[in-house]
């Protein structure tokens, strides 16, 4: 990202000149108080928003210049995990994960194989035919992580993935994200969880009022909740 500004139509300046480069295979925390521009930054990364000014390159592609019909192809290289999981309530865990592959029209045999593989990685093989309502929050979040990585993205964006979870489940999710990162996938995670940031030391980018105030490797959370 180079000199990125984002001004919403209502006049709010969410980002005011962000310069940021995340290398392939990195693990990055994005921290900052509510309303600091964290979410906007994340949305720019998966092309939900377009910068008002400046350049955002994803895998070397300028997202502002991508033609509308090619945007889906950009998104296929990105896995997204949300605080509220965003699972389809009437589909089982297996179907929720398979859905992401059906949507990109993967062959059926490959879907079955890959979905089972991913569910095993997140440790839900025995729960794969349960509906989201029958799963705990931690399990649901693991399903959503499985869905995020099933199409082999080059990077995973997690927007407060532990926001709704108790500490124990939060750690499970973090180990999982670490495991995914160890396999070479870039992980970008927005979080409010001080304990996690301070324990699992990674690069920390702090944002306040739309500008980066701190960017350090192995940094601390640095805020009092």
């Amino acid at each position: 990202m180079h000199d990125v500004w984002k001004v919403y139509p209502n006049g709010v300046e969410a980002l005011r000149g962000i310069d940021l480069k995340i290398e392939q295979g990195e693990f990055v925390y994005i921290v900052g108080p509510s309303g600091s521009g964290k979410s906007t930054l994340i949305k720019l990364m998966y092309r939900e928003e377009v910068p008002t000014h400046g350049v955002v390159l994803i895998n070397g592609v300028n997202v502002k210049r991508v033609r509308d019909w090619k945007i889906p192809h950009v998104r296929r290289k990105i896995g997204v995990v949300f605080q509220d999981y965003k699972l389809l309530p009437n589909l089982t865990a297996y179907e929720n994960v398979a859905f992401a592959m059906e949507a990109v029209e993967a062959p059926r045999r490959k879907i079955k194989q890959r979905v089972e593989e991913v569910l095993e990685l997140v440790g839900l093989t025995d729960r794969m035919h349960a509906l989201p309502s029958q799963l705990s929050g931690g399990e649901q979040q693991r399903v959503s992580i499985a869905r995020a990585i099933v199409n082999n993205p080059t990077f995973v964006i997690a927007d407060e993935p532990t926001g709704n979870l108790d500490p124990e489940n939060s750690w499970d999710i973090m180990y999982l994200l670490e495991e995914i990162n160890n396999r070479g996938t870039t992980v970008v995670m927005a979080t409010h969880n001080k304990e996690i940031v301070n324990t699992m030391r990674q690069r920390v980018i702090a944002i306040e009022q739309g500008v980066i105030v701190r960017d350090e490797l192995g940094g601390e959370y640095g805020y009092e909740d």
Partner: peptide, 16 residues
Amino acid sequence: RREIEIMRLVGASNWF
């Protein structure tokens, strides 16, 4: 709606 949102996020084409 939710389904469409998720489809878009995982990169389903508009025609899909």
